[in-house]
Design a protein around this nucleic acid. Structure first.
Length: 793
RNA sequence: GCCGAAGUGGCGGAAUUGGCAGACGCGCCGGACUCAAAAUCCGGUGGCCCUCGGGCCGUGUGGGUUCGAUUCCCACCUUCGGCACCA
């Protein structure tokens, strides 16, 4: 019999699909929109190298969904592109030498070859790359829409500076105080930088405006919720007479206001500069130099008394003002009212400096005490009443504070989208007029990072007249964070060659939100949050008619090597090329999904791929054998036929509803094993066709070849098999008989027996009788088609 | 500290609504074919005991609910993830 030879059949079918334009999905003409449509997307790759097995897992999963939906009557959009701007690609270029464009394009080309070799069903006519002018002119256009509405602004603010990458890094991509890209400790710097006003959408982003079919993992929502960090409380004004200032304080515990015994300013607070005491100024200078993490790691709290006092608005008490670095300028108002009795940090500080501690909450009864007119009120009511009272006095109001900071998106690097702004001495920040877009990324002599934007070195590009007054002005030389590109790339896929708009509103509203987005959870507070922010703004701008970019979201687990995540930056990657060469794409695709649940982290190991290869070979042989038998008439009702129907039901439910990809493979293995045991079964051919049809999303080349040998064509267009409910249940089943919950016998019985008949079967079993031992039967439980439990105790 | 997820054979894992724990695969053991090997095929494979009929134990630990719990409830342990001097 002919051997299974993937190296021969895989290129053959890839060519067939290409010539048939099998995976191309043109936009439907207006008014002819198909009812069932599906936008399948996986996070796009950085072309900073080539694909590793983590990508293979990600895209194969998307591929299985694509085939499954196509064959279930959906019109499926499944595009691909490259996140080609940004640090990963640029750093790769620096390492290898040469221009970032050459290297990213070379990597993109290599990835394209890998993707084709793996046989993924991708519509390449929609390919986009972030670094191509056709794409980034619309990134610039979108930036201008944000800028004009004050949602993109330039300001001096504390930012994270990565000394290795020589650029500002967003909070979202600083992990444990280190740059997520290179692992270097970032420094806090105050710099003039560009920000997107994502904080204005903090409340909106806490709400998921999903379509009725939408579904986000709870843990991802939790991560975003923690990141946004909404706290409800009040802002209360404290008077400093000496400075003639009313200082606002944010607190979540206005109910403890009577327990305040001192007051603290962050060392960076603007008022600190106005305190005429050398030790205060020295302290502020010292702490400013230290990073937040170091400050948090201190075992003993530090601080200095200012000699000044504030008035507690609730009782007129004079509270001493301290400056201490446990109060952070970035959160709330940079000041706190200290209640050492009911706040651990305040208590620690009070104990260190021997400040008074005054209890105002009776924890046992949950009421406030020693709090003037509010004494005796339950905590929640006291919070409300105290704020109400303060409001009447003009000394406070309910307030909300967030952990979320604005998104800093300007980078002092070369390989990114230029920011279309011109700095004019007279007119300030002037947007480049829309008709002058794109602002093309200029060539520079040396793009390596030196702390100043490389674009500034090209003076011919840099110096331009102000669009308003025509006087000499300079272009913005920072470039955009690559996460700006990825915040909207998925919208461009729907209309990728549009040259008068980023996309057509009707087309984008037809395809979006994305039916299924697949990618790593590491982007929960970055890319996924930024994209939601972008879509919210774009809806306000009337560009799109939906509020969420991603309807369903799924996170694949990480592949690990030696216990740590497989990633290019760690250097512990392994690619698919050698495996594909040795075993074929179908084996690699099937194996990566067979390894385990796709949403769990898995240690990468090649032991085991042999098992999948053996399965594919077994399938090959048994199907060729079945193909030689004459087709059977009608629908034979045999145990094998029923197994085939059960397998259809399981695979359909697992892929479609449960989003579980490894168990359908097991199910087809079981079917194949049974087919091998019963080659002469009248349903053998039916079982063979079913197995081939079900394995097609995983092993499309093998399946197509076998389908052809079974006398059919174009399995990729063949409707997904349907399980016949009448044939799902076997006509007999193994009745489990328990006595007092323990299995004592099993009998093969007809499926259509009544409860009474089942009990009769059970009690007539000799083995069961032995356990009953003539004793009293107190109760009998019957689970139809499963078991009988006889209770004697 | 707060929030969230998860603990099942030697290994990856299955058990979907409370109903046979260990499907499927890896590995391992034995056998067939072979001069030999590879490939392939057949059988076995949670632990302990056994008179070979079978019995007992067993899904992180301890309790509970139930005729029946990997599944539900309570407490705890461990691992992983998010947040964290966030007022």
């Amino acid at each position: 019999m002919e051997r299974y030879d993937p190296q021969q059949i895989e290129p053959k079918w890839q060519q067939v699909w290409e010539e048939a334009k099998a995976w191309e999905t043109p936009n439907p003409p207006p008014g002819e929109a198909p009812e069932n449509h599906w936008y399948q997307l996986e996070m796009l790759p950085y072309p900073s190298g080539t694909l590793h097995m983590g990508h293979v897992l990600n895209y194969t999963m998307g591929d299985v969904v694509t085939h499954f939906r196509r064959r279930n009557g959906f019109t499926v959009l499944r595009p691909m592109g490259f996140d080609s701007f940004g640090l990963p690609a640029e750093n790769a270029a620096i390492k290898e030498g040469g221009h970032p464009r050459e290297i990213t394009e070379r990597n993109s080309a290599a990835i394209r070859v890998q993707m084709r070799r793996l046989g993924w069903a991708i519509d390449w006519t929609r390919e986009i790359s972030a670094h191509e002018v056709d794409f980034y002119r619309w990134t610039q256009w979108l930036f201008l829409q944000f800028f004009e509405r004050g949602l993109a602004y330039r300001a001096g603010a504390p930012v994270n500076w990565c000394p290795n990458d020589q650029t500002v890094v967003a909070n979202e991509y600083v992990v444990d105080g280190r740059c997520d890209r290179c692992g270097t400790q970032v420094e806090a710097r105050i710099m003039d930088q560009w920000f997107f006003k994502i904080t204005a959408y903090a409340d909106e982003l806490l709400e998921y405006d999903l379509p009725e079919w939408g579904e986000w993992p709870e843990r991802t929502k939790t991560i975003q919720r923690n990141w946004i960090g909404r706290s409800e409380g009040a802002e209360i004004l404290f008077r400093i007479d000496e400075l003639d200032e009313d200082v606002p304080v944010f607190t979540t515990r206005p109910d403890t206001l009577f327990g305040a015994t001192f007051f603290v300013l962050a060392p960076e607070h603007p008022l600190v500069a106005r305190i005429p005491r050398d030790e205060v100024q020295d302290y502020a200078k010292q702490t400013a130099a230290r990073r937040g993490e170091d400050r948090a790691a201190e075992t003993v709290k530090t601080g200095v008394f200012t000699g000044m006092y504030v008035t507690n608005p609730v009782n007129g008490e004079q509270l001493p003002i301290w400056v201490a670095d446990y109060v952070l300028m970035e959160y709330g108002t940079g000041t706190i009212m200290a209640v050492p009795a009911h706040d651990e940090r305040d208590r620690e500080f009070a104990e260190t400096f021997s400040l008074p501690i005054r209890e105002v909450i009776d924890e046992e009864n949950g009421v406030v005490v020693d709090s003037g007119d509010f004494t005796g009120l339950p905590v929640d009511e006291a919070k409300r009443k105290i704020v109400e009272w303060l409001h009447e006095q003009g000394r406070g109001a309910p307030a909300v504070s967030y952990r979320l900071r604005d998104w800093s998106f300007s980078r002092q690097r070369y390989w990114g989208c230029p920011i279309p702004i011109i700095h004019c001495e007279e007119h300030g920040l002037v947007p480049v007029p829309e008709e002058e877009l794109p602002v093309e990324l200029p060539e520079v002599e040396d793009y390596r990072p030196k702390g100043v934007p490389p674009l500034a070195s090209n003076e011919a590009w840099l110096n331009v007249p102000c669009p308003i007054c025509g006087k000499p002005a300079k272009r913005e030389a920072d470039t955009m964070d690559t996460f700006v590109d990825s915040s909207w790339y998925y919208l461009r896929y729907v209309d990728p060659r549009n040259d008068h708009a980023p996309f057509d509103r009707r087309v984008v509203d037809f395809w979006c939100p994305i039916s299924q987005y697949i990618g790593g959870i590491d982007h929960a507070t970055g890319h996924l949050l930024y994209s939601r922010f972008f879509v919210r703004v774009m809806r306000e701008l009337g560009l799109v008619g939906f509020g969420e970019p991603f309807g369903r979201l799924f996170h694949q687990g990480w592949l690990q090597m030696g216990g740590s995540k497989m990633s290019k930056s760690k250097g512990n990657v392994t690619g698919p090329d050698e495996l594909v060469e040795q075993y074929g794409a179908d084996a690699v695709r099937t194996y990566i999904l067979f390894m385990g649940p796709a949403d769990q982290d898995m240690e990468w190991t090649e032991t085991g791929i042999e098992g999948v290869v053996r399965f594919l070979r077994r399938l090959w042989r048994v199907v060729l054998d079945a193909a030689e038998r004459p087709p059977t008439d009608g629908r034979p009702d045999t145990a094998l036929a029923r197994k085939a129907h059960q397998t259809v039901a399981k695979a359909t439910d697992d892929i479609g509803r449960r989003f579980q990809f490894h168990t359908p493979i097991s199910a087809v293995m079981e079917l194949t094993n049974e087919l091998i045991q019963a080659p002469d079964d009248p349903a053998a051919r039916f079982a063979a066709e079913t197995a081939v049809s079900l394995i097609q999303p995983y092993a499309p080349h093998l399946a197509e070849e076998l389908w052809e040998r079974l006398g059919h064509e174009q399995l990729w267009e063949e409707p997904w098999p349907q399980a016949d409910p009448a044939l799902l249940e076997p006509d007999t089943f193994e009745l489990v008989i328990q006595v007092d919950g323990r299995v004592r016998d099993r009998l093969e019985v007809p499926s259509d027996l009544s409860e009474e008949e089942l009990i009769a079967c059970a009690t007539s079993s000799e083995r069961v009788k032995a356990f009953l031992d003539g004793g009293e039967i107190r109760q009998t439980i019957v689970v139809p088609r499963k078991l009988v439990n006889i209770v004697t105790k």
